[in-house]
Every structure is written in C-alpha cells, then in structure tokens.
Design a protein around this nucleic acid. Sequence first.
DNA 1: GACCAGGCACATC
DNA 2: GATGTGCATGGT
Length: 229
Amino acid sequence: MEKKQKRAIWTQRDFQSNGDLTKIYYLLFQGFGPQYWWPGDTPFEVVIGAILTQNTSWTNVARAIQNLKDTGCLDPKSLCSIDKQELAHLIRPSGYYQIKAQRLKAFIDYLFLYHNGRLEGMFDQDLNSLREELLGIKGIGPETADSIILYAANQPIFVVDAYTKRIFSRHGFFPETWPYADIQSFFMAHLPQDVRLYNEYHALIVRLAKMHCRKRPICHQCPLNDERT
DNA sequence: GACCAGGCACATC
DNA sequence: GATGTGCATGGT
C-alpha cells in the first residue's frame, strides 16, 4: 500500500501548454493545505474586512475589526448611526482611516437605502447584477466587489489581486500589463465555476505570495517552479 | 529610515 | 485611455 504522498511536480511548460490552472491549484493545496478563508465570523464582517483591507496588511485590519467588535459597532445599524469621525478613530489601525470611514459609510448608507440594511437582500440576486451594484458604490472597486461576492455572498467569481497579477505574470502566464478583467477571465475560462475552488485558490495565492521573494522576478523557493531544472 | 501591505478615486495629459 | 498621486498605519 502506497502510504507516502508523492509530491507532484510539473514544469512551467506544462502549465502554459495546456493552460491547466487546476494543476497549480492542487500543487499549492498540497504544499500549503486549506487556508480557511475568509477570516471573519459573519458575511457582514467579511464585507467590512474587504473594504478595510484595501492596500493594507491583514494584521492591521484585524485590529480595526477588533475595535469595532469591542465597541459593539460591527453590525449595519450601529455603523449607520455612528459618527464618521468616531468610526475613523476606531478603524485607525487599518490605515487610510479617513477615506475608509467614508467608504464604510457609503456602503452602509447604500445598504439601508436599497436593502433595508440587510445583506441578505443585497445578495439575493444574480452574480452580475450584484457585481454591478457593488461597483456602483463609491469606494468599492473590482477586487473589493469580487471579494464580497465570493467570500460573503458565496457566489463563484475569481478574485484577482496584486499578488495574482505579479506572480502569474512573472511566471509567464500573461503580460504584466493585462488589466483586471482580462486576468479574471483567464482564470475563470480555465477553471470550473466553483465557489470553494475560487475561495481556496485566491487564499493559496496570498499564502504563496507571503513566501515569494519580492526582489527577484521569480522566487526559487516557489512551489510553482520546476524543481527538475 | 526605507519599504511594503489582500485598492480606489480623482486629476491631468 | 494611460499615468501619476493622495490616502496612513504598523511590521520587517
């Protein structure tokens, strides 16, 4: 009986010739295991986290979210009634706190104006309509919208972030100049439309990025590299 | 002290 | 349409 798990290794050429991004997923999953994303107790917390984590490390966001929890502000009603400056003070550790307070307020105001302050109401529509709606809210761009759709609304859309772009362009899958929409289409065209897969894949890319060397074009410790050459 | 982190909006050309 | 800039804290 074969007990040992053989570590699968593919070459970059294999990836590029058959476009099988599923292989890469399994390679990353074998290397890192499940990432249990998104780190949040409720869909609402996921939404708030998605806005707060814009261009910010998660450790700083976690502090801001903890402040909101400690003061009993992590719910739509409380965030609706709280003064913007007070909110800015609470989320200060996440950086860009003035602009983010404004963005959180914009989202909450929208939620109450069109969905009675209920996320369920907002999420109860097809993916494209939801995405259009989210993108219409000031302060929510493509990545934040897609993070909300995937991790809070549990609908299948692939989240592209700076890591995805950097790592996969450096490994030669597409030019670094490709815009967000093209990269997203590339992944979604080569992967089954599956919420759990997209959830884990994006999380694994972030996990990978944290060990990727920033200074070299390609990190030689990266599991995506061909170890035979 | 420099650099970076799970973006976005806006001004300018 | 493409590019540059402001927004800001906390870890390495």
